[in-house]
Simulated scan of single mutants.
Amino acid sequence: MIQKCVEALLLVVRHRLDEIMNMMLNALEFQAKIQNGLIQIPDEYKQELREGDDIKVIVLVNKKSFPKKDIIDELTDNPVQVNGVLAREEIYSH
């Protein structure tokens, strides 16, 4: 009698564990290029994903260029010349 109860309880626990495992996230990582607004999933991962699966997508973009210059960078590269203002050399030479 006790053995049958334990077996029944184990079946319930196994079933619940299967449900929990199915709810857990499984992370896939791959490199891709965006083409026509779509991200192609590599063939080796397609068998892990089913039509209608709910997924969470995080996109990390590789930036190949440096960020645009800000106003400080522009002024450092192209200082504004103002007439009537003393230059550094003129200030410290007196």
Rank of each mutant, 00 (worst) to 15 (best):
D53Y: 10
P42F: 13
G84W: 03
G84E: 00
G84P: 00
N62F: 12
V80D: 02
P42T: 12
L75G: 06
I41Y: 06
T76D: 11
S65D: 09
D73K: 12
K69I: 05
V82C: 02
I91G: 00
E90K: 01
K69T: 11
T76R: 03
V80Q: 02
A87V: 00
N62R: 15
V57G: 10
I58R: 15
L86S: 00
T76Y: 13
K63Q: 08
A27D: 10
N36D: 15
Q81W: 02
F30A: 03
N26W: 02
I72D: 13
N83W: 01
I71E: 07
G37H: 03
L49K: 03
K69F: 11
H94F: 12
F66D: 09
R88Q: 06
T76N: 09
E89I: 01
L38W: 04
N83E: 08
E51I: 09
I71G: 02
K69V: 05
G37Y: 06
G84L: 04
L60D: 14
Q35C: 01
Q47F: 12
K63C: 14
I41S: 05
P79W: 09
D70V: 08
I39Y: 05
G52N: 11
P42E: 14
Y92I: 05
A87T: 03
D53P: 04
V82D: 02
L75C: 12
I39M: 09
I34V: 15
K68M: 06
